[in-house]
Amino acid sequence: MNTMTENKYFFRPCTWIFLLLVGLTVVTWFIGMKQFSGLQISLMVLGIALLKGQLIGDYFMGLRRVSGFWRWAVAIWLLLIGSLISYAFNISA
């Protein structure tokens, strides 16, 4: 019975999120392999990473079903490091 219940939900939301994460990872790798560079490219790659991080926090860590501080704990971390890294790349561009 349990197996049937699991099979019924094989393409559950987390499976689609997993496929999206794989797709975004391949995009990042492709940008790296093509040696694309520059501030805008770097910020785009960083943006993709932050989006992936938020997806992991929401769907894999289960924070989308949490309220209050813990709902935003990972998002705050991503926002902070994203801002610092963006600033550092901006001053070196």
Binding site: G32, A49, I56, G57, M61, I85
Partner: peptide, 19 residues
């Protein structure tokens, strides 16, 4: 385990791709 994954998700582009 997801935290370990999350950290690598940022580390990968920062160290290997962004320039």
């Amino acid at each position: 385990w997801h935290m370990v994954d999350l950290v690598w998700i940022v580390l990968f582009p920062l160290v290997y791709v962004m320039k």
